[in-house]
């Protein structure tokens, strides 16, 4: 569906995307992860033929984005980072207008709109203006709108950023259904739980390059241990404790508020900590997540 080699995006002197290669197969759900400014959105905008590439090659749906932008976008659904809904029109009108951009007959749009409103759980709001809808509803409408043309490829740029947990879970459920239906999804996100839920395969982007790629499981195996032990000590105490714990784990991370021990057997490590006579204020043994991978690869320092 998408094939990129040495893809580059420059804005003046600034290199947003610095020569990346990837390929996305039909029916796959592919994620771009990364902190803000990592180049995710620039990559998405190139795939969606909105932003011309500065270097490398890119094929989307077997076509060239520079020459066949319109034909590619006719088969693509795009959910941009910021909603571009017409706030003064009704929910249904927004779908109608968008369908007309694809030159679909009104009757067909109306039929699909009905199904999509059902899918997006917006049926009761069909004739309400968009402006007063909640963020989650607007987001679901944007996704429904992107699906109006029955696209082969759905591109979602940070689909759930800024939504409350309920709204996010509902949206994930909807996206999961799309995945089940065989729609190819390309998603950017900086939420690890989102990536774990939705992506078959993902890349971690940092400073315009891919820091890692694979399935969520592969990434965890490659860049984290099976389990993580989190230890909290009294303030000031853990700098003293930390050196003695190094041997207990494959990798140790000392944070201002806690110590993380990366190990394949968390309980054993914890028992060992207790045997050494350290009394932690709280302890937690958990499975490694993509978040651990992400933070390891992109660092803990705030980027912006």
């Amino acid at each position: 569906m998408v094939e990129a080699h040495g893809l580059v995006k420059r804005f003046g002197d600034f290199v947003a995307v610095d020569g990346v290669d990837f390929s996305i197969a039909r029916g796959e759900s592919f994620g771009f992860l990364g902190p803000n400014g990592a180049g995710k959105t620039s990559t998405m905008r190139m795939i969606s033929c909105i932003s011309p590439l500065s270097g490398g090659t890119l094929r989307v749906l077997g076509m060239d984005p520079l020459k066949d932008g319109a034909r590619i976008r006719a088969r693509m659904g795009l959910v941009p980072q910021e909603d571009s809904l017409d706030l003064e029109l009704t929910v249904l009108d927004n779908l109608m207008i968008y369908g007309r951009y694809f030159d679909m007959p009104k009757k067909v749009i109306r039929e699909r709109a009905e199904q999509l409103l059902d899918f997006a759980q917006l049926t009761e709001r069909a004739n309400d203006r968009v402006d007063p809808l909640s963020g989650g509803m607007k987001r679901r409408l944007t996704i429904a709108r992107a699906l109006i043309s029955d696209p082969d490829l759905l591109i979602l740029d940070e689909p759930t950023t800024g939504l409350d947990p309920q709204a996010r879970h509902l949206l994930w459920d909807r996206l999961y259904r799309l995945k089940q239906d065989g729609v190819t999804l390309v998603i950017t996100t900086h939420y690890m739980d989102e990536a774990e839920q939705l992506c078959d395969r993902l890349v971690v982007m940092d400073k315009g390059r891919f820091a890692a790629e694979g399935t969520p499981r592969q990434l965890i195996e490659a860049y984290a241990t099976k389990e993580v032990v989190e230890l909290r000590f009294a303030p000031g105490e853990h700098e003293d404790v930390a050196p003695s714990l190094v041997a207990l784990a494959e990798r140790q991370e000392v944070l201002p508020d806690r110590i993380l021990l990366y190990t394949d057997d968390g309980d054993a490590a914890l028992a060992e900590v207790a045997r050494m006579g350290h009394v932690a204020r709280s302890t937690l043994v958990r499975r490694s997540t993509l978040e651990d991978v992400f933070l390891r690869l992109t660092g803990r320092t705030l980027v912006d």
Partner: peptide, 18 residues
């Protein structure tokens, strides 16, 4: 499959005319 995703038959038939 479902009625929602026919992957391109009907819906696209008349695209690109206007």
């Amino acid at each position: 499959g479902t009625t929602l995703f026919r992957h391109g038959e009907d819906v696209t038939a008349r695209r690109m005319a206007t």
